[in-house]
C-alpha cells in the first residue's frame, strides 16, 4: 500500500490531465488486471520473476534470494494487480478538480508543483483515499495471483486468503470459519469506509 500510492497518485493525475494521443492505451493497460483472470496475471508474473529472467537475476544479484515465492515477489505482484483500484478513483478525482481551477491557481502565481500540492491534492484526496482503501481491501482478498507467484509458504507468502484455502484442504473447518469471519469483518469495515469517503467527496464538490 505504501508502495502503491506513490505510483497510483501521479499516474492518476497524469491520466486525468494529459492530452496525449495514446492515453487510452495506457488507461487500458492499467485496468487490465481488473478484467484478466488472476491465473493469466500469475502466469506472466511467475514467468517474469523466474530465476533465469532479467528481473529474477537482478533481484538475485541485489538480495541473493529468489523473487518468485518470496514476500517481495507477492508485494510486487500485489502492486501491479491493485493498480486499477487505486488509479481509477484518483484519476476521476483529479478530473473533477477541473482545468479552470488549475488555471486559476497558475494565475495566482503558483508553480505547477505548488498548485498540485496545495490545490489539487486537497481537493482530490477523498478519491485517492477511496482508491487506497479499495486497494487495501482487495489486496487482503487477492488469491489467484498470490497463490501462483507466492506458492503459499507459511510466514512468507501465505496470506489470510491462502490460509483459508489451506485450512479447508486440511479438513479444519473451525480454522477456516474463524479466518473467513475476520476477512469478512475487515472487508465490511473497509468498504463502509469507502462509502463514507465517497459521501464527503460529494460535499466538497458542492463547495466551489
Amino acid at each position: 500500500m505504501a508502495l502503491l500510492l506513490p505510483v497510483a497518485v501521479p499516474l492518476g493525475r497524469w491520466l486525468a490531465t494529459t492530452g496525449w494521443r495514446w492515453r487510452p492505451v495506457i488507461e487500458a493497460a492499467v485496468v487490465l488486471p481488473l478484467v484478466l483472470p488472476p491465473t493469466v496475471m500469475g502466469f506472466y508474473l511467475l514467468a517474469a520473476m523466474g530465476p533465469e529472467t532479467l528481473a529474477g537475476r537482478a533481484w538475485a544479484a541485489l538480495t541473493g534470494g529468489s523473487l518468485a515465492f518470496s514476500f517481495a515477489g507477492i508485494l510486487l505482484a500485489s502492486v501491479l494487480v491493485n493498480l486499477p483500484f487505486a488509479v481509477q478513483p484518483a484519476q476521476r478525482a483529479f478530473e473533477g478538480v477541473g482545468a479552470a481551477l488549475r488555471e486559476a491557481a497558475a494565475s495566482c502565481g503558483m508553480s505547477p508543483w505548488q498548485a498540485f500540492v496545495r490545490v489539487e491534492l486537497p481537493l482530490a484526496w477523498p478519491g485517492i483515499a477511496t482508491g487506497a482503501v479499495l486497494a487495501f481491501a482487495h489486496t487482503l482478498g487477492e488469491f489467484g495471483v498470490v497463490l501462483m507467484v507466492g506458492g503459499a509458504i507459511p510466514g512468507e507468502t501465505r496470506t489470510l486468503a491462502l490460509s483459508i484455502y489451506d485450512r479447508v484442504q486440511a479438513l479444519d473447518e473451525e480454522g477456516a470459519a474463524a479466518m473467513s469471519l475476520v476477512l469478512l469483518a475487515v472487508s465490511l469495515v473497509t468498504v463502509t469506509l469507502t462509502f463514507l469517503l465517497a459521501g464527503r467527496r460529494g460535499a466538497i464538490r458542492l463547495g466551489p
Binding site: L46, G50, P51, G56, G65, S66, L67, A68, F69, S70, G151, A152, I153, P154, G155, E156, D166, Q169
Partner: peptide, 20 residues
C-alpha cells in the same frame, strides 16, 4: 520445520521456478 503441501508435480514446478 515449516511444511508446505501440494501435489508432487506442482512442487516440482515450484522448485524448478526457484522456490526456497
Amino acid at each position: 520445520i515449516r511444511p508446505v503441501y501440494g501435489s508432487s508435480g506442482q512442487v516440482f514446478q515450484q522448485i524448478m521456478a526457484g522456490a526456497p
